[in-house]
Design a protein around this nucleic acid. Structure first.
Length: 883
RNA sequence: GGGGGGUUAGCUCAGUGGGAGAGCUCCUGCCUUACAAGCAGGCUGUCGUGGGUUCAAAUCCCUCACCCCCCA
């Protein structure tokens, strides 16, 4: 057989794109048919106009790891990709583009605007797909969906109509969060609260009857034109007598009453609060309780409207605030002000300050659905990883509020409601009507608002599979298995999907929910555009390859923990991939002139059995880790196996043995080694997909592709603790001598003489004989004596204690006796202390009667171990003192 | 105000009841022809504080301190 040549350096660019194309062309991402339980993930759809950031990379790579693992495990495996139309965000993107051309959506009209948006969507969509391909996602592109495609739009309509018919959707005038920049209402959870520096103003409101004045405290004096009352706490004795009296609003002639409401905090400000129901959520509640009017003082663009005195009309809120303060001051109403920082809501898309704003909106009544979702959790139909997120989930559902689903946007699913302009009839329909269903007039008009984007995303786990039709995909792949997402959308998305699935299909949409950490920079800060501390996943792929990124992220993905990285962090994965590449390169070089043979297990060497044992153990660890979503443990297990066991010991031993063996033995060695290599390529594939495929296909002992190979599982026949013991012993011998060499500064090329003396009763003494030459090779010995009879002359050597053996190194250089004695004494002291604590435990009645038998057994073996070490230490000390 | 998380080696973090770990950094020596993206060896810890439970606590419970997040 000819040697297989690998490029000298690992260069992922040489093969990653090619391999991805190979997988796609081969249809490897499609679910195989079979009776096993399918493993299904729906990808959280990225915003179609966004760009993938490290969070997406982490998220999708963990999904890919799961998918590849279960695919190799033989389950029909489906990963559904797709994108989200992201109403507000996308509309903002398109509006910005129009603005550059001096255009505004109002000037080009709704239809043209939507047409333009589709074009932008197509363009961005292709970028996103390329990014997902670049990082190696093995999702089924033939099943890719978009939240606004035909099928999903039908699902949205169906769900809207069903909820409406059930009485769970209603329309009405309510106080909502309104973004004056985006020009739309937002749901409660779409508002981000940020601490804003502000002032608390003390404003005097005179009594109508001229009997003096009271003082209210407010952070928003400009909303005073919307005041309809001043409230005090009914328990506040200072003001009890004032309840019911009337006040005059400064700068206007409006009279408002003093009312009592327990909402008022007596400690805050003056204990008197102005009530502005149309512009404050708490005041809205107070207003409802007291049946107060709700004058709206704002236009949709955030300027003051006709409700306020002429002087302030058309001013924006902040300008009006300044003007009002100036006028209050000038007229003596302002009694003072103080620094007051408070949380102010901001739009989660454009970060504009939110205005609480009364308007007509559509809502979903959530209580009944939330209760079902809570019950599903209590019944353990869903599990969160890490578990603590279940608190977040249940707390939100317990305190759920109705969901405002109408948005004053153009890009999105238009609400399927039509109004007859002739008879006023309102129609909620699955299909577009041509005439009024009541009076047959064709003079009808569709509701102009669109639906919240989440109103389509919450259907994602089943709308992507064909719902509302009863498709084969839906029957086969729903409910899905696992959802992988970030904690920031547990409210927006996760809990709503669970509610929707329970509502429309009567089942939870997935069993497990893995919540990823946030990817942060090395200082622990969120990655953001404004800080400029973000890392582009494509830069990582460009610098180190997709495998390096994927492996590093898995390695760092400890459950429930955020991940702190910079570009350099990905060297971890890159170095590992390089190591794999080079180890393979070395082994393939050694194929020259070899014949591959089938080696029976009984022909394995102790090293072969040891290596299979370790690989077998690693397979068990990976299985357990992946199935409990402990990605870091899984990654560490394969890393340690390949690097610390395979490269550092097994391949090093192979090197030596290849050199001194006959052809038949060489064939045997290389055959077993390649088998172990192929085994590890399979084990590594979910973590380093490209390089393992590239190598697997180059190996002469494999067929097909690793992506569809069977994943290694723990097998009893490979379990070999005896060989683990033996090789560990050999490693102990080698390491202890290497330490001496390093500490004594013995030059690497310098051969040494060593006497290796097994303890008299030591079971594995014969193993030293068998491996004598290999040990000598590993420690650079010219002469290694296995001194079973304890008769070798060891005076003037450096003694080294081991567990079950001791070694004596002939050092030509002068031994620094003082230093060696000191080291031994320190060691001896430690061992004596350890022995003392073990003895204490073993003489403790409580310990002996309470501790587990294994724990007691352990202490006994520790005792003899320390005794052995102490005995050897004392003897070695004497030897050294005699020098 | 309510809830959650964190505090372990210089840095970033694993480790959930029985002898303190990894990666990176650092130090020493090596270009031993698979890999210097490497090899061999080494240093470093009152496991935040104080208490409790236990034969036994980094690990379970409580207190406090500091940091981070979410909700209101």
């Amino acid at each position: 057989m000819k040697a297989v040549e690998l490029e000298k350096a690992y260069n992922p660019k040489d093969f990653e794109d090619r391999i991805y194309q190979y997988w796609r062309d081969g249809g490897y991402f499609k679910p195989k048919s079979g009776n096993e339980k399918p493993f299904v993930i729906v990808m959280p759809p990225p915003n179609v106009t966004g760009i993938l950031h490290m969070g997406h990379a982490l998220n999708n790579q963990l999904q890919d790891t799961l998918i590849r693992y279960y695919r190799m495990n033989g389950r029909p495996t489906l990963w559904v990709p797709g994108t989200d139309h992201a109403g507000i965000a996308t509309q903002n993107v398109v509006e910005r583009q129009l603005a550059k051309k001096g255009l505004h959506r109002q000037t080009i009209g709704r239809e043209a605007f939507i047409e333009e948006t589709w074009k932008v969507k197509e363009h961005h969509h292709d970028i996103i797909v390329r990014q997902l391909e670049k990082i190696g996602c093995s999702c089924d592109w033939d099943r890719e969906r978009f939240t606004m495609d035909e099928g999903l739009s039908r699902a949205v309509r169906e769900s809207f109509v069903r909820l409406y018919e059930k009485g769970l959707i209603y329309r009405g005038n309510y106080l909502v969060n309104y973004c004056t920049h985006c020009g739309t209402a937002l749901a409660d959870d779409e508002v981000d609260y940020q601490l804003v520096e502000g002032r608390l103003y003390q404003v005097a409101y005179p009594f109508k009857d001229g009997s003096g004045e009271i003082t209210v405290a407010t952070t928003r004096p400009e909303t005073m034109f919307g005041d309809v009352a001043v409230a005090v706490n009914p328990l506040d004795e200072r003001y009890t007598a004032l309840i019911g009296k009337e006040l005059i609003l400064p700068l206007t002639n409006k009279a408002i009453p003093i009312i009592a409401d327990s909402y008022v905090d007596m400690e805050f400000g003056t204990g008197m609060v102005k009530i502005t129901p149309a512009h404050d959520p708490n005041d809205w509640e107070v207003g409802k309780r007291h049946d107060l009017p709700t004058p709206n003082i704002l236009n949709p663009d955030g300027t003051l409207n006709e409700e306020v005195p002429v002087a302030y009309r058309h001013m924006d809120v902040l300008t009006a605030r300044k003007a009002v303060i100036a006028d209050l001051t000038a007229n003596g109403f302002l009694k003072g002000s103080s620094r007051h920082d408070h949380d102010v809501g901001h739009c989660y898309r454009c970060h504009t300050m939110i205005e609480p704003y009364v308007s007509e909106q559509w809502f979903v009544s959530m209580r009944s659905m939330a209760d079902k979702a809570l019950q599903a959790w209590k019944d353990e139909h869903i599990s969160f990883y890490a578990k603590r997120w279940e608190n977040t989930y249940s707390h939100w559902l317990e305190n759920i509020r109705d969901w405002c689903i109408s948005r004053q946007l153009w890009w999105g699913h238009r609400i399927p409601v039509w109004y007859c302009k002739d008879c006023g009839h309102m129609m909620v329909l699955r299909d577009d009507p041509t005439a009024c269903t009541k009076c047959s007039s064709s003079n009808i008009e569709q509701e102009s608002d669109v639906l919240d984007t989440w109103f389509s995303s919450w259907l994602w786990p089943f709308s992507t599979l064909g719902w509302p039709d009863d498709t084969e995909d839906l029957k086969t792949f729903f409910p899905t298995s696992t959802l992988v997402t970030g904690y920031d959308i547990i409210f927006f998305w996760v809990s709503r999907m669970i509610m929707a699935a329970l509502e429309f299909l009567g089942e939870v949409p997935f069993k497990d929910i893995y919540i990823t950490g946030l990817v942060r920079d090395k200082q622990g800060r969120k990655m953001s555009k404004s800080l400029g501390n973000g890392i582009d996943p494509l830069d990582v792929v460009d610098s180190y390859g997709a495998d390096a990124m994927k492996f590093t992220l898995c390695y760092m993905a400890a459950q429930g923990q955020d991940i702190l990285v910079d570009l350099e962090s990905f060297k971890l994965g890159s170095r590992f991939a390089n190591k794999i590449w080079n180890a393979t390169r070395f082994l393939l070089m050694n194929l020259e002139g070899r014949n591959l043979v089938t080696v029976k297990q009984e022909d394995y060497s102790v090293f072969d059995r040891w290596m299979y044992h370790q690989a077998n153990q690693a397979a068990a660890k990976v299985t357990a880790a992946i199935e409990s979503y402990r990605f870091n443990d899984a990654a560490q297990a394969v890393y340690d196996l390949f690097w610390n066991d395979f490269c550092d010991w097994y391949v090093e031993a192979v090197k030596y043995m290849l050199n001194r063996s006959e052809d038949n033995e060489k064939d045997r060695i290389i055959s077993v080694t390649l088998d172990l290599l192929a085994y590890q390529m399979k084990l590594l594939h979910p973590f380093l997909s490209f390089i393992t495929e590239e190598i697997y296909q180059k190996l002469p002992n494999t067929e097909g592709s690793v992506i569809q190979a069977s994943y290694p599982v723990w097998e009893h026949s490979l379990d070999s603790p005896n060989d683990l013991n033996k090789v560990s012993l050999l490693q102990d011998v080698v390491k202890s001598i290497r330490t001496v060499r390093a500490e004594m500064h013995i030059a690497p090329e310098k051969r040494i003489r060593v006497v290796l003396r097994p303890d008299r009763d030591f079971q594995e003494a014969s193993f030293f004989f068998q491996q004598k030459d290999l040990i000598a090779y590993f420690i650079g010995a010219s002469e290694l004596v296995i001194d079973v009879s304890h008769e070798s002359e060891v005076a003037k050597t450096l003694p080294v204690a081991g567990h079950g053996f001791e070694s004596f190194v002939f050092v030509r250089q002068a031994i620094d006796v003082e230093r060696e004695i000191e080291k031994l004494q320190t060691e001896l002291h430690k061992n004596i202390q350890s022995l003392e604590s073990v003895r204490k435990k073993l003489s403790n009645e409580q310990f002996l009667s309470n501790a587990k038998p294994e724990a007691i057994e352990k202490e006994h073996s520790k005792k003899s171990e320390f005794e052995e070490k102490i005995e050897k230490g004392q003897r070695h000390l004497k030897l050294l003192q005699a020098l």
